[in-house]
Measured scan of single mutants.
Amino acid sequence: MDLSALRVEEVQNVINAMQKILECPICLELIKEPVSTKCDHIFCKFCMLKLLNQKKGPSQCPLCKNDITKRSLQESTRFSQLVEELLKIICAFQLDTGLEYANSYNFAKKENNSPEHLKDEVSIIQSMGYRNRAKRLLQSEPENPSLQETSLSVQLSNLGTVRTLRTKQRIQPQKTSVYIELGSDSSEDTVNKATYCSVGDQELLQITPQGTRDEISLDSAKKAACEFSETDVTNTEHHQPSNNDLNTTEKRAAERHPEKYQGSSVSNLHVEPCGTNTHASSLQHENSSLLLTKDRMNVEKAEFCNKSKQPGLARSQHNRWAGSKETCNDRRTPSTEKKVDLNADPLCERKEWNKQKLPCSENPRDTEDVPWITLNSSIQKVNEWFSRSDELLGSDDSHDGESESNAKVADVLDVLNEVDEYSGSSEKIDLLASDPHEALICKSERVHSKSVESNIEDKIFGKTYRKKASLPNLSHVTENLIIGAFVTEPQIIQERPLTNKLKRKRRPTSGL
């Protein structure tokens, strides 16, 4: 017993010596996670971090007073192994002897410093981030199933929210409404489509400006004509009531908005009720001829604005009016007729031209339509002016008669200019590109209106002035400009410049 007691005391002394060697000089306990400095002193990692955080910048070693920084600290694995072995020896000594260790306080702390507990403390002390800490805590505590279930439920809930957000973003663009038309193969669909197009076009005519009305009406008319041609002859009974509906809707729209509806009346003529396609083609032919005449008058307007600064050229074209007008009339009417003589009366030419125009518009179905009313009214106005011209010709002399006839021709041009508003800008460009020769010939008609105004002003003063002067240069210039014009009389060319000069002198006297 005595020997055993001596041996136990010796073992205890050895353990105490080893414990003092492996103590931390700051906390005076076994080193936890030993860290060595540049001066080869060993301290606990937790104690050194606490010391360095007390001051900004480098701190001093507690043993040798040298500078220490966080970067200079290094882990010493050898001392950590020695500490672990010492703890194992102490545990074995207690089991063999059955005696508690003399320094129970220190031993209890040593026992608490088992490797499992050290790992837990290291995970908390090290600044490795929240995710690494959570992982280490889960690994160190596998015995708690409640914690695992809560963490898994949190992760699953987070994943569910992310997935639901993604699915919502994908589903939202798919919620856009999609309209699908289910059509049938019955023959009544074509008639319904035609009526739908006509009503939609009328609404567009009321909303859209004048520049786009003609294009819309032309497209709708083409669509309706194609649909009529596709149907068989057996379905004509269905077409006639639908066309009557079209007429009623167009008349109502014309009564409500007459000014807006006139812009599309000329282009919509071939959508009118037709028994066969031949009647629609004839109407299209007549409309094309009318559009040609209207576009020519538009060309004359532009030329008149350009040549208004040259009064000499405008005056020299006075007698070329009849010849150029004959050529335009021959090209406007498709019928083959002989040219009228140069010395014939211009009023007779106008009456013949009106007689040619009237039969074209005397179809029984055309008179029933609303768009032809505008053309009939313009023709009636022309006839009224010609009836007035006959009365004026009986009273005035030959020279005054010529000037009045020219004035009436200008009035006719004004009437025809009203129809110019109905034609589109695209048709003007096509006419100029296809028929430049006709445009040059028809330019002379509009330029002549300037000389007509001068004659009217001469009649106000009650006299006409003449001068025997020749202007050969002007006649040559005008002959080169206009290709299809005829030779003019030299006496009238000489008379016109004198009248304008005298007018300039006598205007201030009349004002006084």
Rank of each mutant, 00 (worst) to 15 (best):
P145E: 07
C39M: 00
Q148P: 03
K55L: 13
N106E: 10
S80M: 10
P115H: 04
S186N: 12
L182A: 07
K70N: 06
K45E: 02
N66T: 05
N106R: 09
S146D: 01
K88Y: 15
E116V: 06
Y179Q: 12
C27G: 01
L159C: 06
R78Q: 12
I124F: 03
D185F: 15
D40Q: 15
D189H: 15
L73S: 00
K32A: 11
S184L: 10
S184G: 06
C44P: 00
P58V: 12
I124G: 05
K55H: 13
K20N: 15
K70G: 13
P58R: 09
V178F: 10
Q94A: 13
R170V: 11
F107Y: 00
E111N: 12
Q81L: 12
C61G: 00
Q139N: 07
L30G: 14
E33N: 13
V11H: 02
M48L: 15
Q60Y: 14
S177P: 06
I90D: 04
L30A: 03
I171W: 01
S140Q: 09
L156A: 09
D185C: 11
C47A: 00
R163W: 11
I15S: 00
L159Q: 15
F43R: 01
S140N: 08
Q139S: 03
K175L: 10
C47K: 02
P145D: 04
E181L: 10
I90N: 12
T97N: 01
L52P: 15
V8P: 03
K38A: 09
S177H: 04
T167A: 08
Q155V: 06
L152W: 07
T37R: 01
S146L: 13
Q126L: 09
L51T: 13
K45Y: 07
K88R: 14
T77G: 10
E116M: 03
N132M: 14
H117G: 10
E111A: 10
A134F: 08
R7D: 08
R136T: 03
P115A: 03
K168D: 11
R166H: 06
K168S: 06
G129V: 11
S184C: 05
P142D: 13
S157Y: 13
S186L: 04
P115F: 11
L52I: 06
N113Q: 10
I15A: 00
